[in-house]
Amino acid sequence: MSLTHLETLEAESIHIMREVVATADNPVMLYSVGKDSAVMLHIARKAFYPNKIPFPLMHVDTTWKFKEMISFRDEIISKYGLKLIVHINKEGVKMGVGPITHGSSVHTDKMKTQGLKQALDKYQFDVAFGGARRDEEKSRAKERIFSFRTEKHQWDPKNQRPELWNIFNTKKKKGESIRVFPLSNWTELDVWQYIYKENIPIVPLYFSDKRPVVERDGVLILVDDERLPLKKDEKPILKNVRFRTLGCYPLTGAVESNAKTLPEIIQEMLVAKTSERDGRLIDFDNIASMEQKKQGGYF
């Protein structure tokens, strides 16, 4: 009996996670609360069953996440009895950094990139799992499953270790760290199919509901709290919307949709005309922007 493609992907992800646990000193799973994190967490629970997951989860909270993400996160953590570290860049908070006042690139750099670096340094994690996939974006397609970062958390795309067969070189010097992407070979469709097949809980924001939004530059922004300043003539309208990707709410566009179930979401995806990252405003800067962010330490 040959394995199906989802079984093959699951087995590969488990192999990667166990390889980390067998060789790392102090691993952590970066948990962003999105659907990819949900899949990664689900697989981790399988990989170490009947034991508990032998590492903590960490959420770098930019303080601008959707409210529903935070409540969903806390629910999952208590449901499965997991250990969660929440890190907020206090310096950024003190400076009042936010996406509205400082723009998306300053906010993302300060609260997400710098926040992540601070947290990794503070807890001395040597390996961090991330839920990124190679199909998301061009520069990710070339990243290794085990991706090395210098002491300053930098990525050097020209100097990546070759990955042969399923033998992973996990050696590193003191101070260096590794980002490991167990879902590297999954596509967006694989992720949805797997969530459907395994009945994995995800944040309700992925499903359509009537939500108050305003339209700005052709993007629908959810009015998640009172911090979103409304222009004079702007009035939130209730629309049936959902999100294909989740991040900071002022930076994440909603799509109009009536999809209330997973099969409906998947059907919508199959006829979708825009790629997933289209909802993320941080990718719009220029052609190679993701590559530059990563060299600077963005996950």
């Binding site: 493609h5 199909d135 520069s139 397609a141 070759p162 596509t187 190679a288 590559e291």
Partner: peptide
């Protein structure tokens, strides 16, 4: 240009690393 991801390669017009791509048909991924 769709597959030549890194900006250095785009300028030189050659693929310098291994890139992994995904597609599927009804039979296989």
């Amino acid at each position: 240009l769709l597959v030549d991801g890194l900006s250095a390669e785009m300028e030189q017009g050659i693929t310098i690393d291994v890139a992994y791509r995904f597609f599927s048909t009804d039979k296989r991924k």
